[in-house]
């Protein structure tokens, strides 16, 4: 692992994107940053601009209006970039699977590195997922390929 990777994994900055969610997943993400869970322990910080972000946290069932914007935001992200799908909606569209406005699951639109299931996942689960992501990037051989 080079020095760049090392520095990269030490302080992941996350950008949070809601693409037609019910808000609960987004709140649980914010909850991770508040005193009880405090994900900043692991060097993660919420950033205001996608151009500063290392990780894109996507929630929601990716509706038609969001698909082009989601793609554009993903393209604006600097490399190396990671994408985390949070919540049942982002994984498989959850209860909205039959909706006329949610044509595709998230991983058909952009590549996804980690899936965190739950409706909404608990903040502990989100933290565990992000830590797994870091671990996997550190030792790519130890982990089963996702």
């Amino acid at each position: 692992m080079g020095i760049l990777d090392h520095a990269f994994l030490k302080s992941l900055w996350v950008f949070h994107l809601a693409t037609g969610s019910c808000n609960n997943c987004d709140i649980e993400i914010l909850d991770c940053f508040t005193p009880r869970h405090d994900i900043e322990r692991f060097g993660m910080q919420l950033t205001g601009s996608i151009k500063h972000a290392d990780v894109l946290l996507v929630t929601g069932a990716v509706n038609r209006q969001c698909i082009p914007r989601l793609k554009r935001i993903y393209e604006q992200m600097p490399n190396p970039r990671l994408v985390v799908a949070i919540g049942e909606c982002a994984l498989s569209r959850g209860v909205f699977v039959h909706s006329y406005n949610c044509p595709l699951p998230l991983d058909h639109v952009i590549p996804v590195d980690v899936y965190i299931p739950g409706c909404p996942p608990r903040p502990e689960a989100i933290i565990a997922g992000l830590i797994k992501l870091i671990e996997q990037k550190k030792n790519p051989k130890d982990q089963p390929q996702a």
């Binding site: 509706n63 209006q65 909205f96 039959h98």
Partner: peptide, 26 residues
């Protein structure tokens, strides 16, 4: 940006299932 067509979705669910769909409006 958040439209998910919930009113239409509700029309294809049974009455007991709708409580879980409307729970996820917000």
């Amino acid at each position: 940006y958040n439209h998910r067509g919930i009113e239409k979705l509700a029309e294809r669910q049974a009455y007991d299932q709708i409580t879980f769909v409307v729970e996820r409006i917000c």
